[in-house]
């Protein structure tokens, strides 16, 4: 079993961190996992993305050429990546900033959530990425909510950002509790 994920959005929306949270959660489940970022020139255009591969076996390539799951937090990322998603794959869009009419794929499962608006309503705008991860955990069987919450808190604790854990869990739950 191998799952390939791309997280994409504007720089500052936390898509690289979202990928690292998936990486860490997968690592805690004893999966093989790789994370690969956009870097250098590619970053200077203001967009960012990362590829996360989660597998039961050794991982050959860290590139998600045809992701099973695509998370897009802004419009340009949808345009850039939607055609790469595997047929039957899952597309998660942030409807606060992405126009649903831009989705051209009809052979993927579409999941929509206004995660930026939700994050703003929680007075935690920068946690839109975490709201989306909550929604992703609800709609896939990658991680249970408890597995993800625990690994997320541990990750932030390790990176010296543990004091925001309560707010981050709140953001995660509000994504997870979406229908």
């Amino acid at each position: 079993m191998i799952t390939e994920i791309i997280c994409a959005g504007f720089g500052g929306q936390g898509v690289l961190t979202a990928g690292k949270l998936l990486l860490y959660a997968a690592y805690k489940k004893d999966k093989h996992v790789t994370w690969f970022p956009s870097y250098g020139n590619e970053m200077r255009g203001g967009s960012a993305n990362c590829n996360v591969i989660i597998s039961d076996d050794r991982i050959a390539s860290p590139y998600a050429d045809n992701p099973d799951m695509l998370i897009v937090l802004n419009g340009p990322s949808l345009e850039k990546f939607q055609n790469t998603v595997k047929p039957g794959g899952r597309l998660f869009i942030n409807t606060s900033l992405v126009d649903e009419a831009m989705v051209t794929r009809t052979d993927v499962e579409l999941f929509k959530a206004p995660v930026t608006d939700i994050a703003i309503s929680l007075k935690n705008e920068r946690a839109a990425n975490i709201v989306m991860l909550g929604y992703l955990c609800k709609k896939t069987n990658l991680f249970t909510d408890k597995e993800f919450e625990n690994s997320m808190c541990e990750y932030f604790e390790d990176s010296g950002k543990g004091k925001y854990n309560e707010k981050n869990v709140e953001a995660f739950r509000s994504g997870y509790n979406l229908d």
Binding site: L23, V33, T34, W35, F36
Partner: peptide, 9 residues
């Protein structure tokens, strides 16, 4: 660049 930029445990 791939080995250098990627994260693995």
């Amino acid at each position: 660049a791939t080995i250098g930029q990627m994260i693995e445990p």
